[in-house]
Each structure stands twice: as structure tokens, then as C-alpha cells.
């Protein structure tokens, strides 16, 4: 439940917890670092552009790791690039989030066996919060992943670790098949 869903009526006063306000602020202005590594970056740029318009979620690419709180690893991470990715991740201020976009960055993708130069999954060098499958993922998938990051931020509280927040997120997840079936029945009716 978002903060604005609470319905502010009584003289613009709303009573909520500090956690809620902090999380709402963070998830409403996720600033990803503007960098792309391969064809996934094209899809990411398309998502940023007017057709999919990430700015409606407050998501806007920044040119510096020091101004970013989200890293979208969009593309093939080569061994040469892996060290730079670590450096960039370390330059980001906390709290920071990592979204691994596409098969290459998830697990090496088509280069998993014979790609001697490819890092087989960016999670070998930096901690990943959300994986988006696809080769490359469509903008809808990327937006889905970004919403997952927002859900993760919503799970956070002062005093609990990221791992615990991820656990809470996993417990909350439901089988998409039920949602699809429900929507189908609505359409049929």
C-alpha cells in the first residue's frame, strides 16, 4: 500500500511511520545509473524513452554513480568490464539496489560455455536484488523488474537487513497463474 493511497483529507495531515515515508521517498525516485553494456541497453533506453516513459515512476537515468541508487546491469558483462562494474558499484551511495537485466548478466546467457571472455553472471561480483529474464527482456519485463525493486524497498524497515527484506518479498509473492486466470474470467464475464 503506497503512502498516497492512504487518502489525505483532514487538512493535509497524515499519520504514518518513518519507515513508510522513507520507503515512499526512495521508491518514488529510483535513479538508475545511465550505463549499458550490450543490446539490453537498447531495450533499457527504449523503456526510458517516451513510449514507456519511466519518468512516470520517477525513474530517471543519472550520469554519475554518486547520484544513483539503482544499477541496471543491462547486457553482457565481460571479464574486462567486471572490474569496472565493481568499481562503479562501490562508488554508489547506500542504500543501493542492483537489477540484473537479461540472460547474459543473469548467468552468462549464450556465452555460458564457450564465451571465455564473459562473466557468467554479474552476481559473481556484486550482490543482485532482482533478476529480469529475457534476451533481451521487453520493456514490460524491465518495468516489472523495477516494480519488484519498488516492492523490495516497501519491505524495508529500520533495523532489518536487506536479506530479511528480500525474504519478506519472497513470502509475499504469489503464483501469477492465478492472477491470469482471474483476469480471464473477468474478461469472459
Amino acid at each position: 500500500m503506497g503512502l498516497l493511497d492512504a487518502g489525505i483529507s483532514k487538512h493535509n495531515v497524515v499519520i504514518t511511520s518513518v519507515d513508510n515515508v522513507l520507503n515512499w521517498a526512495r521508491l518514488s525516485s529510483l535513479w538508475p545509473m545511465g550505463f549499458g553494456l550490450a543490446c539490453c541497453a537498447i531495450e533499457m533506453m527504449a523503456t526510458n524513452a517516451s513510449n514507456y516513459d519511466l519518468e512516470r515512476f520517477g525513474i530517471f537515468p543519472r550520469s554519475s554513480p554518486r547520484q544513483s541508487d539503482l544499477m541496471i546491469v543491462a547486457g553482457t558483462v565481460t571479464m574486462k568490464m567486471a572490474e569496472r562494474v565493481i568499481r562503479l558499484y562501490e562508488q554508489m551511495p547506500e542504500p543501493r539496489y542492483v537489477l540484473s537485466m537479461g540472460s547474459c548478466s543473469n548467468c552468462g546467457g549464450p556465452y555460458w560455455e564457450h564465451g571465455y571472455h564473459v562473466l557468467k553472471g554479474v552476481d559473481r561480483v556484486i550482490p543482485v536484488d532482482v533478476y529480469v529474464p529475457g534476451c533481451p527482456p521487453r520493456p514490460e519485463s524491465l518495468i516489472g523488474g523495477l516494480m519488484k525493486i519498488q516492492e523490495l524497498i516497501r519491505m524495508e524497515q529500520i533495523g532489518i537487513s536487506r536479506a530479511e527484506a528480500l525474504k519478506k518479498l519472497a513470502e509475499k509473492s504469489s503464483d501469477p497463474q492465478q492472477v491470469i486466470e482471474r483476469d480471464r474470467q473477468v474478461v469472459r464475464a
Partner: peptide, 13 residues
Amino acid sequence: KVQESYHGIKVPY
């Protein structure tokens, strides 16, 4: 044959 590790990062799948 690909090397086992590069700067402490595992290379093979």
C-alpha cells in the same frame, strides 16, 4: 582451455 580464475573471479560456468 580457459583459465580457472581471473583476478580472483571464477571464469568457467
